[in-house]
């Protein structure tokens, strides 16, 4: 039950794009048409769902102050949290590389449609952001971390696909010259974000 409410909250209220503006770089660059946007959204969700539980385990059983207690009493005082950033990004980068290789090997068609986005994902702020928020919010168990990853990913996907759909329609409108392209995209993002804020009062 908690997991479901967490998923719903992270999709609508706690949306990676509209509440924190994470993953904006690829959000702006790849939201020109719906199909590619969908591809990137799926890839981001996939990587988030898999890296968050891994990083959660690392955080709670290796990195956190006192996390090494399971090794024995003498390790109870060890605090490796200074390395957490390094470990998180290394996990994400190597995981993205791994996913890339696996997809290339087993499904060349998926690779050709998704493959070009995968290297981009390692430096997508939404992924690292997911891990850092997980660290800050101290989820209760691995399942919650995975649920949070899934919700955040779907929220990101929803945002980028919605944005791409609007931008496709925008082809036919008259936008002031200096605002064309980037400017109007920013304004639309802001308006969508304000729209999404109406979810924030919902008690889930």
């Amino acid at each position: 039950m908690d997991a479901i409410s967490l998923i719903v909250r992270s999709i609508f209220v706690d949306n990676m794009i509209f509440a924190y503006f994470l993953g904006m770089c690829s959000f702006l660059a790849v939201s020109k048409n719906v199909k590619t946007a969908l591809g990137l959204g799926v890839a981001v969700t996939f990587v988030l769902v898999l890296t968050l539980p891994i990083n959660y385990m690392l955080e709670n059983y290796v990195l956190k102050a006192g996390a090494l207690q399971w090794l024995g009493k003498e390790y109870a005082e060890v605090d490796l949290s200074v390395f957490s950033l390094l470990i998180f990004i290394a996990v994400i980068a190597s995981f993205v590389q791994l996913v890339e290789m696996v997809i290339e090997r087993f499904s060349p068609s998926l690779y050709s449609s998704l493959g070009i986005f995968l290297p981009l994902i390692a430096v997508n702020c939404a992924i690292l952001g997911g891990s850092l928020f997980m660290q800050q919010r101290e989820f209760a168990n691995v399942g919650m971390a995975a649920a949070y990853g899934f919700g955040s990913g779907i929220g990101w996907l929803l945002a980028i696909v919605g944005m791409a759909a609007i931008r496709e329609k925008l082809e036919y409108s008259h936008v002031p010259k200096p605002l064309k392209g980037l400017g109007i995209t920013f304004i639309i993002t802001a308006l969508m974000a304000i729209g999404f804020m109406s979810f924030s009062g919902i008690n889930i």
């Binding site: 509209f18 509440a19 924190y20 503006f21 200096p178 605002l179 980037l182 400017g183 109007i184 920013f186 304004i187 993002t189 802001a190 308006l191 974000a193 304000i194 804020m197």
Partner: peptide, 12 residues
């Protein structure tokens, strides 16, 4: 937060 992005749009 959305106002930040609107301000960036104005700067652009």
């Amino acid at each position: 937060a959305p106002m930040a992005i609107l301000l960036v749009a104005c700067i652009i």
